[in-house]
């Protein structure tokens, strides 16, 4: 009686699993790094929805001004403006509140905008404001932008589906 043998397997193709693993790690790494690299300091705000709008290709010379709804803030008529700001080229940008009138009577938003305008030739400001606010809360910010001599203003909106 002849014995039956289980045949040995011969894998002729290369094992691509480690290659795919490495590629996957690289893709995830680059995706995460790319996101961190272009962070604009945009906060979670209920921005208005619009049909029209343009894209900004170069976010490098922009400053995003977050204006959350401050209607519950009865202590001040001034809007709360928050932005990711670095006061020198070597400084890591930090999220800061930029008061339009601080305790020493200075307009910190104006000072910041003037500094950025000096640093970047084609400086742009992005307004990211809560849609439920009244115009009078946004207006002082625009007047400060005017005062700083910034001409390129972009209103951040959500694409209407």
């Amino acid at each position: 009686m002849s014995k039956r043998h289980i045949p040995e397997s011969h894998t002729a193709h290369p094992n691509v699993t480690p290659l795919i693993d490495i590629i996957m790690c690289l893709i995830i790494f680059f995706m995460l790094v790319a996101k961190i690299g272009v962070t604009t300091g945009a906060e979670e705000i209920k921005i208005p929805k619009t049909i029209y709008g343009t894209k900004i290709s170069d976010m490098g010379n922009t400053l995003t001004l977050n204006i959350p709804d401050a209607s519950n803030n009865i202590s001040s008529d001034m809007p709360t403006v928050r932005a990711l700001v670095a006061h020198s080229k070597d400084e890591t940008p930090v999220m800061q509140t930029l008061p339009l009138l601080d305790s020493s009577g200075q307009n910190q938003l104006l000072i910041t905008l003037e500094y950025y305008k000096q640093q970047f030739a084609d400086f742009k400001v992005i307004i990211r404001a809560d849609g439920e606010q009244n115009w009078r809360a946004i207006q002082p910010v625009l007047l400060t932008i005017n005062q700083a001599g910034v001409r390129n203003v972009f209103y951040n909106t959500e694409q209407e589906k």
Partner: peptide, 23 residues
């Protein structure tokens, strides 16, 4: 899957209304 999850969360659902004059 990871790509789609990330793209879905942070994809370009936002855009901008441009103005050359603030106010």
């Amino acid at each position: 899957l990871i790509f789609l999850m990330l793209a879905g969360n942070f994809g370009d659902v936002e855009h901008y209304l441009a103005s050359s004059v603030p106010i």
